[in-house]
Design a protein around this nucleic acid. Sequence first.
DNA 1: ATGACAACAAAATGTTGA
Length: 261
Amino acid sequence: MRIATWNVNSVRQRLGHLLDFLKEAQPDALCLQEIKCVDADFPRREIEEAGWQVETHGQKTFNGVAILSRAKLEDVRRGLPGDDSDEQARYLEGVLPLGSGVVRLASIYLPNGNPPNTEKYPYKLGWMKRLAAHTRMLLAHEEPLVLAGDYNVIPEPRDARDPAAWVSDALFLPQTRSAFRDLINLGLTEALRATTDDAGLYTFWDYQAGAWQRNNGIRIDHLLLSPQAADRLDGVQIAKHVRGWDKPSDHVPVMVELRAA
DNA sequence: ATGACAACAAAATGTTGA
């Protein structure tokens, strides 16, 4: 089973790329972030005609997540629990068949948190705490679980071309990295780091200053696996070439392959 | 400290992102 995640930076702007990527990669499920539209404006028909089912958790203008899947997504949860006053659409979860069992899958758009001296940063850290609390509950099911998305976290210096440029940034501050480790330490496996120690593997290149041309990237899109999912891990791919397409998203898709057995 | 791009809402610039 192939599960992918991609921050598309507006699904309506990226519909052509999205259909091209689905056709090329043939994922069983694709988690989307930053769809930047309400549910009613999601280009559902075009995607369904291509053979994928659609669940959305949208929001006007900003944020918004979705899950596209070959099989119907069951037991759908919209929104991250733990704060009823949080109106930002950043979390969507559901269950898909995997072999004779199931996999639980979440599409995550973790807050950016910049600038750190504003209320945006405590919101990010609070959101990470809520994600950890919810994850602890999900892990108790002892089933395959994949938390996929744009975490807005650079885990380590090797995950940035120029780590010094990020030391005061909400994506790389010690507290951010510590909260990310706290999440991993619940018992999750970061898929890419389970397969390679290589530096220079990025998932985001800024639109500005020729970041793509200079390969000035960062790795902030991650798939975190429960033990039962990690046991099935068969490979991880970053679809780097997608950043070279015409009018691309600033993020590229990341995919994991899970054995069904 | 700032923001060269890009997207959005809107009608000119301002906000947000990473």
